[in-house]
């Protein structure tokens, strides 16, 4: 009988995830197949060995500050929302004011009006471009399948 179907059962056996029926089938196969017995034993040894390894841990003070860092960031996010909303409102008002007082006013020299128009158009274009890039990244940023 082929050993292949039992390779996966070996994994489940090592990890304590093998059902009673599969266990009986695996034991029957192992009784007759010494290469599989050896393979199972070596996989078990590897699992035992890994239990002695420890993942690198941060300093104790990092754990002490862990929650406060999350809390502070959550608070700051709210602050950033207020700042951004305020900035957008002010920028809108300023643009309107510049248009009214400066660009559309016949009393202002044409070179100054042209400069002001280009500046406002450039800033608007930059804003739209950055916003569109961020939006498309947000929509298309699929992490699945990324291999390092």
């Amino acid at each position: 009988m082929s050993c292949d179907p039992f390779k996966l059962s070996m994994m489940a056996k090592i990890d304590g995830e093998l059902g009673r029926d599969e266990e009986a089938a695996l034991q029957a196969h192992l009784a007759a197949c010494s290469p599989c017995r050896e393979e199972l034993a070596s996989h078990q040894r590897i699992k035992e060995m890994t239990s002695f390894l420890r993942l690198r841990q941060p300093e104790d003070r990092d754990w002490e500050q862990y929650w406060s860092r999350i809390h502070n960031r959550l608070e700051r996010n709210l602050a950033w929302i207020f700042v951004s909303a305020g900035a957008v409102l002010l920028a809108g008002f300023l643009t309107f004011w510049l248009l009214e007082q400066f660009v559309l006013s016949a009393a202002v020299p044409w070179a100054l009006r042209l400069g002001g128009t280009l500046l406002i158009a450039g800033l608007l274009l930059l804003f739209v471009s950055v916003w569109r890039e961020r939006w498309s990244l947000r929509k298309t940023d699929r992490y699945e399948g990324i291999i390092r």
Binding site: P58, D62, R69, I70
Partner: peptide, 20 residues
Amino acid sequence: ALGFVRNPEDALEMSQLAFI
């Protein structure tokens, strides 16, 4: 996170970001 980024500082940062 450490398993992915392999650096304790980055792993702390990523795990905190995930909670946020």
